[in-house]
Design a binder for these strands. Structure first.
Lengths: 230, 230
DNA sequence: ACAAAAGTGTTCACACTACACCCATGG
DNA sequence: CCATGGGTGTAGTGTGAACACTTTTGT
């Protein structure tokens, strides 16, 4: 039996906005689109959508992510909720931001045309609608924290990656150069990667070894009371 | 002019739930209440309330905090939004959790009676309604992170505090003993506190010096590129 | 043979940890 | 005078930062 306590209260639109991060050309990128509807149609915007009756916030975010990337099993995390009264000039909307890490190697560029979307370097972000710039800032802060404490960075790659690429990615995320030897020493000390017997020859003549994250080794690492840190 | 794009979508109740932290008797406490309405009336619950048309999420949280503590200027921070379809058995409600740090020394105990509220030690949390236990866990994780990185812990006190009390508070938050000399060395090295000329004699015959957080010294500390860390 | 990126160790400074005794005071 | 909590320093260890040369190979 439902009390009237609930129905006396106001209701609101609830949206999700996704900060979709991808890594290419040695730079961190975000997927943006030209907003297709009024108000502020044509302005740069994050990928978003409204939550529906039968879905959770997480499911709404997954729906949006799948629509714009066609990738399943994307790493995703909530940033926070934004609820200023006038944040959305088109109506009273509470929006919950999520950031996601996608594998850009397998991104279908025809999707970009379909949704008028574009991968933009984080150093070159345009003015976005509403409070989306703030959302990106908050997502970046959280991404930096998380990638330094947990092995989520491998979600940017499709299973295998080279150490130079991994270092480039960290440098792109933190926007600061990292010493190559110290970086590799730290990685090696954790013993959570497998060195593969194949090389990536696309970026050098010598070729860089591919590595892969080993979940079992990582679990063992955690069991020993150690903590991921980069 | 409002597009139909918005009004085609569903709307939801939006609530805020507050994890109100306080420090007394060398332990971290949370303010809980017996839920006054169905469903699950009489069960332990966080302090919450619904967001209204004319207020932001933050304002809704401030409203709830003021209602139950009568304190202004409480330190408050959003934890995250909770939006599972069946998280609230009484209806479809998206709830945004906030944690707050209140000064328990000046807490009016008559408020507790008025709202059937009680300060409960975090080690002795009962089963709470809905997903409130999860909210508390998330809030604690965030509180631990924040107090280690930013000087927000002083919000537990009314301006002045003793070092033994500050250490007890850290030990309560992290649930682990801390070495007295190392703790004091770290505090002293930052030079962001003022040592006052008065002592707290309530917990020892010798008395412990009161200290106060000095915002200007802290700003200077930050300007020098240093970072708070405990 | 050379250009271009991959790969590899050591030293130093500083921060964190562990640890034990004297001090001040009220009763 | 003694019990109780407040207050103080040092030595050792581990972690992060700085730093330069050799290797591989396609052209």
């Amino acid at each position: 039996m439902i009390s009237t306590y609930y129905s006396d209260n106001s209701t609101f639109f609830v949206a999700v906005d996704c900060i979709i991060f991808g890594f290419k050309d040695k730079d961190l990128h975000i997927l943006l689109t030209r907003r297709p509807v009024e108000p502020q149609g044509g302005q740069w915007s994050l990928m978003g959508g409204f939550m529906e009756e039968n879905e959770s916030l997480d499911q709404a975010a997954e729906k949006v992510l799948y629509r714009y990337t066609q990738q399943k099993g994307i790493y995703m995390e909530q940033v926070k909720a934004y609820g200023d009264v006038n944040r959305d000039t088109g109506g009273r909307v509470v929006s919950v931001a999520f950031y996601a890490l996608v594998r850009l190697e397998e991104f279908d560029t025809s999707l970009a045309r379909k949704f008028d979307a574009r991968w933009v370097k984080i150093q070159q972000l345009p003015k976005l609608i509403f409070d989306h710039n703030r959302m990106v800032e908050d997502a970046l802060t959280l991404l930096r924290y998380k990638t330094s404490m947990q092995p989520i960075i491998f979600n940017f790659f499709d299973k295998k990656f080279t150490l130079p690429a991994l270092q480039d990615l960290y440098e792109a995320i933190y926007q600061t150069p990292i010493d190559k030897r110290n970086f590799r020493k730290k990685i090696a000390s954790m013993q959570i990667l497998d060195k593969l017997n194949i090389k990536d020859k696309t970026s050098s003549k010598r070729g860089a070894h591919y590595y892969a994250f080993n979940e079992k080794k990582y679990q063992q690492f955690i069991r020993e009371g150690k903590r991921f840190s980069l």
